[in-house]
Design a protein around this nucleic acid. Structure first.
Length: 593
RNA sequence: GGGCCGGUAGCUCAGUCAGGGAGAGCGACGGACUCUUAAUCCGUCGGUCGGGGGUUCAAAUCCCUCCCGGCCCGCCA
């Protein structure tokens, strides 16, 4: 067994190892290393976070990075189990400023029962009441949230509560070994943590009186599986959580290991073969965890992979600063496959999730998809990468849309994703991806945003067809699925309030003041519209009218946009007015309402 | 101080691991569609590949060095 430190930057090239098998998809590089260990099946891929704050999009790295590695291994015929541990025996150390309800709404601490949280500082998350009252505990609320997010993205994952592992005795054996030779445990960890001294015992009991996690262990009885403790104060950042002073006895099920031991212990208990983690762990917990795994627990640590953190709209994710976005929110803006595509990109590269530029991300996905199908206009997208990664990106979508007979259904509101389990289903769906889903249609995202101003689905479809974005012989499901993007892009335009956020000012006329010549021209145009003409004719007449009155065409259009949208620009005006009810258009052009 | 990521067209980025033609999208600009205003189509402009040095017949790519930006590195997790 080697105790040499492993560079967790797994995706970085090591010129020494002469890596002949360079892959276009990073997940295959990781899979190579897992395969090289001859893992037992199922291969276990883990992720996990502590339930503090809001489980935002950045935290989804813990699930999505593992997903692609899991799929790579399934492609190679391995059975894979992906688990996510909610580290919910951790104590609540401070009050989160923001929380998220199960529907994905972010709320301020003040909007929930903050007092109930405050009274429970120091207790395990699973012993803290759910501030929303919807789940058994704060910890379970969090677990449910993560489970829902994984479902929405179609990732099959076992959400495992750390508390349950303790309560079920899963940690007992490893805890006993640790506490049987406390000195050895101290020796290994000491170089990594200054606080490790002769008093240090790697176990934190839960006080039977006050329910808080304590740090002062007075004695250990490995045979009996108990510790004696005193409930003393614990430091949590810049504040102190007071202990109650109680002295008592706790079993190994009634407490927790400190993180530096708990993480490797999870590897042992769950048989973890691979775990991705953020770079904060790369230089802290990983080196010590690896050392503990080899030299204290005597197990092989998992294949690591550091992922870069990404930013949101240019700034770090921060729930306290309000710079967060949840999976549910994202899926109101883009399809799940587009989000999965985002996570399929190189994890070793820091990138920004820019909501204002989701049209770019979506456009890149569309080209990626076209590259897979060998269609034109794939441009910058690497066909080899698309060939390899697209099935993993799209499979959960196809799973949600197609039934066992291969018939597509687009029903409900989306997002459409379903976790795929089992080799047979995988193969069946890959067949559908190859032949079937290739009939899908995609509206350019900004075009979809423009269509958002027409409420009538029939109009949306007609315009999309007129503009050539939907093939004449497109199957119904493909049309429905393509048009579903309109709702997403509409949300987007509304959320970022950009130039696509057209809103017909129907109820009330915008505050307008026009030059008399413009007013005369508008009256003329109103007369023309009143005669009853189609959109194209109206469009032409706008030009004619402007010229007839010696007006700058651009200014005249601007007047129209001002009148209907209270903006300087908008959709192609003639066809749009042609779709509205004539009486309204005429009255508005005459500035009568 | 140490580590990692990034610095390629106005913007967002691919290309860097296997050195050889500097690319895409968006934007801008021009044109087509009886009609400058979403869309579509055609075209054009646009880059000292952060700076410097080195290796090489050849460097965005390999090596060294420096600069700029971002993040991480007590405890906790």
């Amino acid at each position: 067994m080697s105790a040499d430190a492993t560079d967790p930057y797994t995706l970085h090239e090591d010129p020494e190892d002469g890596d002949e098998d360079h892959h276009v998809f990073w997940a295959d590089e990781v899979a190579d290393q897992i395969e090289a260990r001859n893992p037992d099946e199922p291969v276990v891929i883990k992720g996990g976070i502590s339930p503090s704050g809001v489980p935002h999009l950045g935290n989804m790295n813990e699930i999505m990075r593992g997903y692609f590695v899991a799929e790579a291994l399934r492609d190679r015929g391995y059975e894979v189990r992906q688990v996510f541990t909610t580290d919910d025996r951790d104590p609540l150390r401070k009050l989160p400023r923001k929380l998220a309800d199960l529907d994905g709404n972010i709320v301020d601490l003040g909007d929930v029962d903050a007092g109930a949280l405050g009274r429970n500082l120091g207790k395990p998350y699973t012993d803290v009441p759910d501030p929303f009252g919807c789940c058994d505990s704060y910890g379970e609320h969090f677990s449910n949230f993560v489970r829902r997010a994984a479902d929405q993205l179609g990732v099959p994952i076992d959400v495992v509560s750390n508390t349950e592992l303790y309560e079920d005795g899963e940690f007992e054996d490893v805890t006993r070994r640790l506490l049987s030779d406390v000195e050895h445990a101290r020796e290994v960890l000491a170089p990594y943590q200054d606080k490790v001294d002769e008093e240090y015992v790697p176990f934190n009991p839960i006080c039977e009186d006050c329910g808080k996690i304590t740090e002062t262990v007075l004695s250990v009885d490995p045979e009996a599986g108990t510790v004696e403790y005193a409930c003393t104060d614990i430091e949590a950042g810049d504040r102190t959580i007071e202990g109650c002073g109680h002295q008592g006895t706790a079993t190994f099920r009634e407490g927790k290991l400190p993180w530096r031991f708990e993480w490797p212990a999870q590897w042992e208990i769950l048989g973890v073969d691979h775990e991705p983690f953020g770079k904060d762990h790369a230089e802290g917990s990983w080196p010590s965890g690896e050392d503990v795994a080899w030299n204290v627990l005597g197990i092989e640590p998992p294949v690591p992979m550091v992922y870069e953190w990404f930013t949101l709209n240019g700034d770090p994710f921060s729930s306290s600063a309000g710079n967060v976005i949840l999976v549910g929110e994202v899926l109101e803006l883009i399809e799940p496959e587009v989000l999965r595509y985002f996570f399929a990109k190189d994890p070793s590269r820091a990138r920004d999730f820019d909501v204002a530029e989701l049209d770019h991300l979506t456009g890149a996905f569309d080209r990626f998809e076209r590259a897979y199908y060998g269609e034109p206009d794939a441009d910058d997208q690497d066909p080899e990468f698309a060939e390899r990664a697209y099935p993993d990106v799209i499979r959960p979508t196809v799973a949600a849309l197609v039934d066992e007979e291969g018939v597509f259904h687009v029903e409900g509101d989306g997002p459409w994703s379903r976790a795929v389990v089992g080799t047979e289903e995988r193969e069946r769906l890959d067949g559908v991806v190859e032949a079937g889903f290739d009939r899908r249609e995609r509206l350019p995202y900004t075009f979809a945003a423009v269509l958002g101003m027409a409420d009538d689905p029939a109009i949306r479809e007609q315009v999309a067809r007129d503009e050539g974005h939907v093939a004449e012989d497109a199957p119904d499901w493909a049309v429905d699925y393509a048009l579903a993007r309109v709702g997403l892009a509409e949300h987007w335009a509304d959320r970022v309030d950009n130039e696509f956020n057209y809103e017909l000012k129907r109820a009330e006329m915008p505050d307008v003041a026009f030059d008399p010549r413009v007013e005369t021209a508008l009256d003329d145009l109103a007369d023309f519209v009143a005669e009853g003409h189609d959109g194209e004719a109206i469009q032409g007449e706008i030009y004619q009218t402007a010229r007839r009155h010696d007006l700058d065409v651009g200014d005249f259009f601007a007047a129209g946009y001002r009148l209907f949208f209270d903006q300087e620009q908008g959709p192609k005006l003639g066809p749009f007015l042609g779709k509205l009810d004539r009486e309204f258009v005429v009255r508005r052009l005459r500035r009568e309402e």
